[in-house]
Write a protein that binds this DNA or RNA. Structure first.
Lengths: 244, 244
DNA sequence: ACAAAAGTGTTTGGAGTACACCCATGA
DNA sequence: TCATGGGTGTACTCCAAACACTTTTGT
């Protein structure tokens, strides 16, 4: 009988969960606490953990997101593998690994997974363990993060930009059921990190028949009320089929 | 002292080496031999192997390409991680793993790396072990390949298409020092897997100042001689800087 | 009245695409 | 003389980008 190799236990998965709150893009971070020379240090990391044996990569991502952030039923997609020793940024990461995992991992291989959604129903912190919270992406990138997690966040956003171009279904999940043109434009501005022209954006919206205008308008705003829109999944599918 | 985790020994790396021979795109495959019920079976796989402990992912890819195909100094880029149990395609893969590696790997995680170049100086089989050879991509995809290697090949080509759009430097490496418009067009047709209009392609070439026409023309061809062109790396860098 | 955001069209330039004929060369 | 590939220009369409004023509503 062949001898089984050690399990795939030194592969980790990290999740970049991007949540939109109708104003800006946020990323989910977990607080990390450890001791350096007896002094408590606190910083942040992406939720994630080690893969177990006999587990698909995709399954591991789903499981870890549930364990670490209390979230279920989120579609995640893999965007990149990271496997350079230079991922370890100084003593902080080394000490944390020793204290948290009880091990020294020489070469920390991680697979980056991303998920995006609107903060609210599915994407909330109700079941999240202590220490998990949202941070605006801009802020998060300036904070001291574990390992190369800042790079993971940037890569995940790049991937998001790319996948929106090939299939904008993702924005469905980032918008509430009804939304204004401003909200939708704000989302695109967050994702592309640049301002978009109001009129050109509206023109674009009109082209897409699956973005349907409603009669309903905003209530109680201190300016002219904006029209609401909704996504029509049936029309979207028809539209997509028409592309082949 | 913390206990070291088992080494990262169940992670494999597979290399999709794409070589252009001025006519078509080829992929490097390794012959795989094993026994099924005492009968010898031969099929093909992408060169690759297991990562060792204390090794960067990128290093592993470079090392494996050297060990398995005798090639050095090739730039490789990672394109995707594959980690589903369904990668294993029936008994063939299971038997091969047992006989070749002496182990049963429950969940074969592999990281796909790609490299592209022109077949010739750097990219040749002079130092390649027996069983390594080039196959036209079209043929390779129809052959029985190990695991999900056909998918890896397709993904690598997709990645190639994408990276050429963002940075066409790759085509520099696929062309000889001097080349005709036909050769360059043929390359693009291979990569995009469709025919391109001659005149429109020429028009495009003229736009790119870093593709410089030479006075020299082909010799001894049975038709009007084609002009040669070359890539100018300095102009290319200038051109790229102008894009920001 | 004023502050704040909504709503609305036109123009321009560049890029992609489709398309057909004559030219030079060696066999 | 013929077969082979080289070389060349125009017209149309589509898309992206730039750009300014009037309307509605609550305070």
């Amino acid at each position: 009988m062949p001898i089984a190799l050690p399990p795939t236990c030194c592969i980790s998965v990290n999740c970049v969960v991007l949540g939109f709150d109708s104003k800006k893009l946020n990323v989910l971070l977990e607080q990390r606490e450890y001791l350096i020379d007896g002094k408590k240090v606190v910083d942040h990391m992406l939720p994630g953990g080690l893969m177990t044996d006999n587990e698909d990569l995709d399954e591991a991502a789903t499981r870890l997101l549930h364990e670490k952030a209390g979230m279920r039923n989120l579609k995640m997609f893999q965007f990149k593998a990271y496997g350079s020793r230079s991922r370890i940024k100084g003593r902080n990461d080394i000490e944390w690994m020793k204290q948290q995992l009880g091990v020294e991992i020489v070469n920390p291989l991680t697979i980056g997974y991303a998920s995006v959604g609107k903060i609210g129903r599915k994407l909330n912190l109700h079941n999240a363990p202590k220490g998990i919270s949202w941070f605006p992406v801009e802020e998060a990138l300036k904070m001291p993060l574990a390992f190369d997690h800042a790079i993971l966040i940037q890569d995940a956003i790049k991937m998001l930009q790319y996948s929106i171009e090939t299939d904008p279904i993702i924005v469905f999940n980032l918008m509430p059921l009804k939304f204004t043109a401003l909200q939708l434009r704000t989302l695109y501005e967050c994702i592309y990190r640049k301002e978009l022209d109001v009129r050109n954006f509206k023109k674009k919206m009109k082209q897409y028949e699956y973005v349907v205008p409603l009669e309903e308008v905003e209530q109680g705003v201190a300016h002219r009320a904006a029209r609401y829109y909704r996504f029509d999944r049936v029309k979207y599918k028809k539209y997509r089929r028409g592309m082949d």
